[in-house]
């Protein structure tokens, strides 16, 4: 059995799905079911008068219970370790989970993670018993430091959040896989098409996390199903062992020379 293990929790699905930006709660719920995901991300926001999310989250929670899936709350919007630590503590109380998708953004234009603030927040939260899923860049050394701090899972970006550009730096991602063979690696952010998810899985990544690619699809439920199938298929392909590419043609049909020595 090819099981994904996230901090001791065994999972069959290798697709983690975000819950934001769907056209309706019912579409979101149907997308979760169609994707076969077992982990969905959620958030927290500062309450303002008259706030609400039109029942989206309530719909998610009901679907999740039926599907036996897990919640992964995030610290979206945080710009410092201090903010992220406070928000993580709130998430643990509200969602009753030690899992936290740790996001600390360092640049407003690219929403690139801040590696220093991220490491500081991760170290503090791990000491408090959190199981941290850091949203990080593909920089090898900063990833190593996160592992040193006690992260068992790393979630490097494929491309900037919501950009749908796919894997901008496959070399860096391949290097992470080769250099960090024991870490659970999940490509988070930048996935736009099922082929992008397949490419990540074929590099040997353990899972992918995506949101906009499904939520903003013309048919989110069908796209959720497509991602679920592609991720499973590409994972099987990786495990099967992908042939080495050749620079030139190599005939596959075992003929003996030319069929006729004429012409």
């Amino acid at each position: 059995m090819d099981t994904l293990n996230l901090y001791g929790t065994p999972l069959d699905s290798r697709l983690l799905l975000g819950t934001a930006g769907y056209p309706s709660p019912s579409v979101l719920a149907a997308a979760i079911v169609a994707s076969c995901t077992q982990v969905v991300t959620v958030g927290l926001k500062r309450t303002l008068a008259g706030d609400g999310d039109n029942g989206f989250l309530q719909g998610v929670l009901q679907t999740l219970r039926a599907q036996g899936a897990h919640l992964l709350p995030n610290t979206a919007g945080c710009r410092s370790a201090r903010e992220a630590i406070q928000l993580a503590r709130m998430a643990r109380e509200l969602y009753d989970t030690r899992w936290i998708k740790l996001e600390v953004v360092g640049d407003e234009y690219t929403l690139q993670p801040d590696p220093w603030q991220l490491l500081e927040a991760a170290s503090t939260l791990i000491a408090e018993g959190f199981q941290v899923f850091p949203y990080c860049t593909d920089d090898l050394v900063s990833c190593q430091r996160l592992l040193d701090a006690g992260c068992e899972v790393l979630m490097p970006w494929g491309a900037p959040i919501g950009s749908g550009q796919g894997l901008l730096n496959p070399w860096a991602l391949r290097t992470l896989r080769e250099r960090l063979p024991d870490a659970v690696l999940i490509v988070d952010a930048g996935i736009g098409a099922p082929s992008h998810a397949a490419a990540a899985m074929e590099l040997g990544f353990d899972a992918v996390l995506l949101n906009s690619a499904v939520a903003h699809a013309g048919d989110p439920v069908l796209m959720a199903q497509a991602f679920g199938q592609v991720v499973a298929g590409a994972r099987a392909g990786y495990r099967a062992g992908i042939m080495a590419a050749q620079a030139m043609a190599v005939a596959s049909t075992p003929v003996t020379g030319r069929p006729f020595l004429i012409g």
Binding site: G18, T19, A20, G21, Y22, L28, T41, V42, G43, L44, K45, R46, T47, D51, D53, F56, L57, V60, P73, N74, A76, L87, M90, L94, Y95, I161, G162, N211, S212
Partner: peptide, 10 residues
């Protein structure tokens, strides 16, 4: 005093 509520998220 600031209050936070659960919402959808990516």
């Amino acid at each position: 005093i600031t209050l936070f509520m659960p919402i959808v998220g990516g």
